[in-house]
Design a protein around this nucleic acid. Structure first.
Lengths: 343, 343
DNA sequence: GATTTAAACGAAAACGTTTTCGATTTTGTT
DNA sequence: AACAAAATCGAAAACGTTTTCGTTTAAATC
């Protein structure tokens, strides 16, 4: 019942534990013959190295931590998938934690991962995170840290992002191109960098096209978790206060879908009355009615890239040649669908 | 830069490693005074026990493994969330692996988790899994194993399920109640137990209501990953071969949504021409048009329950009082929406 | 003051592996 | 046959913790 150890193999073969260990790892100073014997017996006994001992000895766990604001989320679950798929290729396991958009939890979880001694951490920040000591603590311990999507510019680690500003600019420009003159923006929470950048892209597009920027058309949501309900609520407010709006650029597809639902309910014609552009390209956006024009955000690729970068840094640190942090920007694409007019 | 160890604390305080260890764990044979000193120094030095060493010594990792067919999936990601949330409460970490509906991968991953020496495993089987040696191997090693949703009845472990048969019966009965006479069924893949049970529930409802069971109305999908495309394809086939069908019970919401999309495209009126019932209650189902009548499957609760059960078994085995496997059936609910007629 | 009891501490083994470095054996060379 | 070189092996330390059990010190009892 007890798992078999090197010692037992050694005893059965009347050789030392050292030789068994070396044989299994193909050290050059073990003869072909003993290597054969050891490997064979190891296989028949179904020997599996004790990870705990290996970890203790080698000081690495071949495990990384992943902290994510929400799991039930099309974009994030795609990222998870990307990370896991890539990690598996390199023999790494992934421990996943959900911060629930809470800074306090995020902090605790970083602590937990550090004391678990994972080899590296990938994180997308909670909306509420404004203090970065916990992240700097990771770097201080010489542990690789990679951020994606919701990042903190100020923390000196690698980041995998999209150009939120540019993508938002493109989205807004599209609304302008099809003739919208009064364009609202649902910007979601205040803090996260990508909220800010998307807002800035929206604003710049307006100004570049000589459209006035009207702050009352920008809807902020204090709720931590941006959601369907938020979209409905904002749509209601919008219809009540601004009946001249003919276009909306919305921070996230889920919110956009909430807005669409409310627009449909109130009999507002999309796209004839109002054109709507979302952000992220959730699968859902392609099946609702009308289908949603949006910005495709490559979640799976982002996950893969994040792990690849983390892996490089793990190796680099191990070889005592730490690399400078790298910022990788992935391409996005405007997906035109039914929720925006064609000219 | 090196992490601080018990030894360093001991040296600074001029006491033994033993006492330091005991002090931190509140052993009764350490004086209040030294406990105070030790704890204080530990805090100022930011001491974190080396998990590798603790694991090696205690033979447990406070980590469990989770194998899931697909991550980007409303139901499964809810389960993940449930498991993680519950695990966190008990101080357990969760390693997540995606089997991609592949038996081979699943087998490898079980192996990986065993050699990683996780304290227990939660799994939802791949569609292709018909051989259960890898699962019995887990039990043979005295590791707790809990299955959920896609289970194998034959494996003697705890299971968290819904009554698929009953739920499918309810769904089909609902179609019958609103007047459907020719009811088709998209049953998805052939192997998984819940596919079978849902089919049996469908069939029994027909027979109990004296409606003929027509095998040509049951659409099977060999594709491993049941999906949107499958729904579209089956809807096409259905419209081509059976223009008298007035109701469909579909295995999974995502497939149902594919079918709805196709029906909409071909101008088939839902629910006037055909009533549609899905299964799982994905969020998406409440926002598409028409909104989808479906069976609510409590993913989050399932995840929580699965971990709770696993936890009990971990404790039980630790105390040398292993418990008999338990099968827990969670309630489901029919959610009536626009895709089925009202009488 | 001698003895018993309780309180506080520590030495050492153990968990299973990896790796250094020295020892032994074998092979090759003259 | 003697020696050098190469090939093969193993002893032992180390990783950091937990826990058993014995030892010392302090307090309590007679």
């Amino acid at each position: 019942m007890k798992p078999v150890t090197l010692k037992e193999i050694a005893e059965q073969l009347n050789i030392s534990v050292t030789t068994v260990s070396k044989a299994l790892k193909d050290y050059p100073d073990v003869s072909k013959k003993t290597k054969g014997l050891v490997k064979e017996l190891a296989k028949t006994l179904n020997y599996k190295p004790n990870t705990f001992a290996v970890n203790l000895r080698t000081k690495e766990s071949k495990t990384i931590g992943l902290i994510i604001p929400v799991i039930v989320h099309h974009f994030f679950s795609n990222v998870i998938k990307g990370i896991i798929s890539q990690a598996e290729k390199k023999g790494y396991l992934v421990i996943i934690l959900q911060s629930n958009e809470s800074y306090d939890l995020e902090k605790k979880q970083i602590d937990l991962l550090l004391s678990q001694r994972v080899d590296g951490i990938i994180i997308s920040l909670a909306n509420g995170t404004a203090n970065f000591n916990h992240l700097n603590e990771v770097l201080a311990q010489d542990k690789p840290l990679v951020m994606f999507d919701k990042i903190a510019k100020i923390v000196k680690c690698s980041k995998i992002i999209i150009d939120d500003r540019k993508a938002a600019y493109t989205a807004t420009q599209h609304l302008i191109d099809i003739g919208c003159k009064r364009i609202a923006h649902f910007r979601g929470a205040l803090l996260p960098q990508n909220s800010i950048d998307r807002f800035l892209g929206y604003k710049k597009a307006l100004l570049d096209n000589n459209l006035p920027y009207d702050p009352s058309l920008v809807y902020i949501c204090e709720c931590g978790d941006m959601s369907f309900e938020e979209g409905k609520k904002n749509a209601q407010l919008l219809l009540k206060d601004h009946n001249d709006v003919d276009g909306v650029f919305i921070n996230t597809d889920l919110v956009a879908i909430g807005a669409l639902t409310e627009f449909n309910k109130q009999g507002v014609k999309i796209p004839e009355d109002i054109s709507v552009v979302g952000f992220s390209n959730w699968f859902m956006s392609s099946v609702i009615s009308p289908t949603l024009t949006t910005i495709d955000q490559p979640g799976f690729k982002m996950g893969k890239t994040a792990f690849k970068q983390l892996y490089k840094e793990i190796k680099a640190i191990k070889n005592k040649k730490p690399k400078a942090p790298k910022i990788i920007t992935l391409e996005t694409e405007l997906i035109k669908r039914e929720s925006t007019r064609t000219i």
